[in-house]
């Protein structure tokens, strides 16, 4: 059984192992013991209600209960940019036109913005390669949406997610090479690392403050604006299926898309509902449409996948109920793991 739960202090070693597996490019999961320990501590304190809003960040892990091992991690920030400025490029349109000269040209420019200040963010997401497939990725990513649905008042009206942009196997980013590189004396790998260890603001403050005409960038850089890294495409597709869209905001370093959605309009938030737990009933066919189910506890949040069948209640096995720390008649929040169209 695969279970989502808040990260705990004892997970540090597992997290270091995951970070090593993730490698370069996973900026939010740097292979740095001190940093990871601090991140865990921040999450633990957030679940304990000990931090102000601007510092709250929740980390969840995916646990393989049979082996008691941590195989994935996901996280969300309650409100970004309230301590350090949060930077994006907004892609804006500029029209240069003259009827007299018969000129009409539309240009896109990158405007450095802090527009997402105060928004909630889906951040780190990493699943061990051995566990990819079998819906583990969806469980890992979407469990956050169920947490969001259950504790909506904690979060902002808009949720964003920065998708990793294009880079090659050597860690070179064409967008960085075409733009950022000119303003630094460091390569993408290094800038990326600094970003991951919490120095993103420092790095961002070295970036050009004036709008950048996209036409002035080399073709290789232009070609990757708004594009996700090949490895990130599944994660992006998953968020898109929940209603997230790129609204022309991109990462200032690698040009990857930032997707966003109004909290209330995220499918998992809109369609999820509280249901009473039903124990001892005949469980629905394991092959039927999976539901994402979570308990309603904040500090002891748990989530897993279970088939719901067509009952009004939520049928669970004894093992599942135990993992969710619920008993018959308790409320759980549930939503179809995939939008209806995906099931067909």
């Amino acid at each position: 059984m695969m279970l989502i739960r808040p990260i705990a202090s004892g997970d540090l070693d597992s997290l270091m192992d995951l970070a090593r597996t993730a490698g370069v490019g996973m900026t939010s999961l740097p292979h740095n013991l001190e940093r990871l320990a601090l991140r865990i501590e921040r999450s633990v304190k957030s679940f304990a209600g000990e931090l102000p809003r601007e510092e709250q960040g929740f980390i969840f892990v995916l646990e393989d209960c049979a082996k008691s091992s941590v195989v994935g991690i996901c996280a969300m920030e309650v409100a970004v940019g309230l301590n350090d400025p949060w930077y994006n490029y907004r892609i804006g349109t500029i029209v240069h036109a003259s009827k007299e000269l018969n000129v009409y040209k539309r240009h896109e420019a990158l405007f450095l913005s802090n527009d997402h200040t105060g928004y909630s963010e889906l951040c780190t997401l990493f699943l061990h390669p051995d566990y990819r497939g079998q819906r583990n990725g969806s469980l890992l990513s979407k469990s956050r949406l169920l947490f969001l649905a259950q504790f909506q008042s904690l979060f902002a009206k808009v949720v964003v997610a920065e998708m990793r942009g294009v880079s090659d196997e050597a860690g070179r980013s064409p967008f960085w090479d075409g733009l950022g590189r000119h303003f630094f004396t460091m390569d993408f790998h290094r800038a990326d690392y600094l970003t991951g260890v919490g120095q993103k603001t420092f790095v961002a403050e070295l970036m050009p403050k004036h709008p950048i005409y996209i036409d002035l960038l080399p073709e290789t850089a232009r070609a990757v604006i708004r594009l996700p890294h090949a490895n990130t495409r599944p994660a992006l597709a998953l968020l898109e299926s929940e209603g997230f869209r790129c609204q022309d905001y991109v990462d200032i370093f690698d040009g990857g898309p930032t997707v966003q959605a109004y909290t209330t309009e995220i499918r998992a938030v809109r369609e999820s509902a509280l249901r009473p737990v039903v124990l001892g009933a005949t469980l629905p066919d394991a092959a039927s449409a999976p539901f994402l189910v979570c308990n309603t506890s904040f500090a002891d949040f748990r989530a897993l996948l279970a088939p719901a069948g067509d009952m009004a209640g939520m049928p669970l096995s004894a093992e599942q109920a135990s993992a969710l720390q619920v008993k018959a008649g308790d409320s759980v929040r549930a939503v179809a793991l995939f939008p209806q169209a995906r099931v067909l």
């Binding site: 240069h96 036109a97 003259s98 007299e100 000269l101 420019a109 000119h182």
Partner: peptide, 16 residues
């Protein structure tokens, strides 16, 4: 007249 159609934001020379 023509200058008014030129880019009005500053141009970062390293990008040229």
């Amino acid at each position: 007249f023509i200058a008014e159609l030129m880019p009005s934001y500053p141009i970062y020379v390293p990008l040229l």
